[in-house]
Design a protein around this nucleic acid. Structure first.
Lengths: 197, 197
DNA sequence: AGCTTTTTCGAACGCCCGTTCGAATCCATG
DNA sequence: CATGGATTCGAACGGGCGTTCGAAAAAGCT
């Protein structure tokens, strides 16, 4: 039964992500996490080095999943535009179905320091580079909006989700993803032709 | 010399905004603020009730300035589209020229509690309602992107600025504002006609 | 059963936090 | 110079924080 350990760790990480998302990393105490996870205060230290390793592991696992998922989602695209659209839809639906972890990833980006912070920043660079490439390809040399500006604007409208979106509300994650993809491609102006998707 | 008091308070608020923006509200200690402002630890309490009043006042002043500025910027518009464009340009340029306060406003939205939190939330509702109205008017009954989704997506791409934009960098605040306005209106696809600005 | 390894946890430690308070200092006036 | 309100601040308090540690308990093994 070596699963026991991993299960307990997963449970702790899940509880921690939930509390971090609600109260914020710095206002969350180890005693909060103890209460939420059902473990004793000292018991948690059997699974984790300390509070910051908890945050790091949540962010690292979540970000890795996002990147892996994005690569796989995008791989099916036939055109640059479709690649971009699939990237957006993956990011948004992943976000909507992992709100707590994604909020912790987005909102607590500056809460880590040292090597752990750098490791997460490396993942971020990788992910940003991925989108930047797609934006450049779609723009294809045309000068209009700077690729960096466009990429960060897109991340902004996608990551801001955690401040207002309710997955249980009227807008399904898929519908939300579609609207953001369309908005980024064509703006609020209603598209003349909705291209299959 | 009654200006002395107001000047000292402004100085304290400015220092606090700077430190809050850099370290985050909860990781900032009153001793940090004492060091940055040059006042003594206990001396600050002559000007302010406590740490949370400091955050509240920063947010309240900043948000009020944003709303007032937006109203005035928008009042010159001739068409709904121009209203929206002026709103965006005002928000982005204000953001870029008050990065510290705006970061504190955007990033520490959940750091207050109780009546103070509610008062800031009231301002937020007012501001969101303002944009929502403009979006609806521009859309003019067309069904495409939900107005709420569009409005929050726009706030997302504008407020995300604090995570990546460097006002001293190659992109001037005005240029950034133009690009975001264009992006929201027409998407990444280069516009057939760039309308004045 | 006994022995070893894994897992739990109560109790405590040292530190730093926000805040208070009374005394010291400043400073415009009489 | 004397007076009194405005302003500053050193020192301290109580409390909560992250973390540690050694012993207890549970689980695995022969």
């Amino acid at each position: 039964m070596k699963l026991k350990y991993d299960d307990r760790l997963d449970h702790l990480l899940q509880s921690a992500a939930s509390v971090f998302a609600t109260k914020g990393y710095h206002s969350t105490t180890m005693r909060d996490l103890s209460r939420e996870s059902g473990m004793s205060l000292s018991g948690m230290y059997y699974y984790v080095e300390g509070k910051d390793e908890l945050l790091f592991t949540i962010q690292e696992r979540c970000f890795s999943a996002v990147i892996t998922g994005a690569r796989s989602a995008v791989s099916l695209a036939l055109t640059p535009r479709e690649r971009l659209e699939l990237f957006i839809r993956h990011h948004v639906t992943f976000f909507a179905s992992h709100m707590e972890e994604m909020k912790v990833l987005s909102h607590e980006a500056e809460s880590l320091a040292g090597p752990r912070r750098e490791q997460i920043d490396d993942l971020k660079r990788e992910y940003v580079e991925m989108l930047l490439g797609m934006v450049r390809t779609v723009q294809d040399g045309s000068i209009g909006i700077n690729a960096h500006v466009a990429a960060y604007a897109l991340f902004g409208m996608m990551n801001w989700i955690y401040t207002w979106y309710d997955p249980e509300g009227p807008e399904t994650p898929d519908a939300l993803a579609n609207q953001l993809a369309q908005l980024f491609a064509y703006g609020i102006t209603p598209t003349p032709v909705t291209h299959g998707g």
